[in-house]
Design a protein around this nucleic acid. Structure first.
Ligand code: FES
Ligand code: FES
Lengths: 145, 145
DNA sequence: ATACTTAAAGACCTTTTTATCCTTTAACGA
DNA sequence: TCGTTAAAGGATAAAAAGGTCTTTAAGTAT
């Protein structure tokens, strides 16, 4: 698909954390993985990466877990995507040419730009927190019921 | 990226064939792969699939090779994508939920629809032949120079 | 202090994708 | 009809993605 599996899980985990954690309210890896319907250990590995990149906060020890602070909830989703999948989907050529450029464009280049910038815009203007709102109001979901 | 490597090669091969073959004018696998900058044997595999699905024509034996007839040149690029990668990118959930639906949408669903339908439209309205034109006129390319 | 809980880290395994090679089959020309 | 040629197809290999498990160490409560 569009994003790697790891990236899909990352976005879902981040949105879930935004809706269910905060300063002083932590969530453990078992809860996160089961609530977003993702493999536990794999999710842990992904959260490690996000934590190292400061997109997610964590606390070890008793009653430890993961959480998002106010700043992190305000981050655009594109930050998560780039942290996990890199920026190739936003900058690379859709037909796999070594680089996407105006000077030597592939046959799809011009039409592609519109779609790609639409995607970029969507992920830039959507913050993790804003997406979490629809989750909290029950109008969106993170796993099949 | 957006498409699998196999799919990228498939699209490039199809566009190249549209520009460089026709009834009576065949192109061999070595030419195709070198002109689109793709691994030879892998390209052969992919063309086998496209041939079996009648998106590409082939001729065995002496002076054999691959070609596209008029009808095949008129096919939309989306046919190639679906033949190789399936329709998940057009119908599946962007966050990897088991299914994309209005009833149980993921938090990105609504914004995603626009991007996805933009992509679908782009690939549906672009025929292989039409993309080949920009190649023939030298205003687009299929590999890094 | 220490015992316990939990995230961090990393080794390991499985599956899928990407890529190569080699044998078989079919078409065609001489 | 024989030999050449090129696609078809199967089998294999390497690499990347996806997923699991075990060990380590940080922090907390007691
Ligand atoms: S060159 Fe292919 S998308 Fe820009
Ligand atoms: S449910 Fe996620 S894109 Fe439609």
């Amino acid at each position: 698909m569009m994003f790697s599996k790891a990236c899909e899980y990352a976005i879902r985990a981040a949105i879930f954390l935004s809706a269910n954690s905060g300063d002083g309210v932590l969530v453990g890896i078992s809860d996160i993985s089961s609530e977003i319907g993702a493999p536990k250990h794999f999710t842990a590995k992904i959260l490690q990466v996000l934590t190292r990149k400061r997109l997610v906060s964590s606390q070890k020890g008793v009653n430890g877990g993961f959480y998002l602070d106010a700043v992190q909830k305000g981050r655009p989703v594109i930050d998560i995507v780039i942290a996990i999948d890199g920026d190739n989907i936003f900058k690379g050529c859709g037909l796999g040419l070594r680089e996407c450029s105006e000077k030597e464009p592939c046959p799809l280049h011009h039409k592609f730009l519109a779609v790609r910038s639409g995607l970029t815009q969507l992920l830039t203007e959507s913050t993790i927190g804003s997406l979490a709102h629809s989750l909290e109001s029950g109008s969106s979901f993170l796993k099949k019921s």
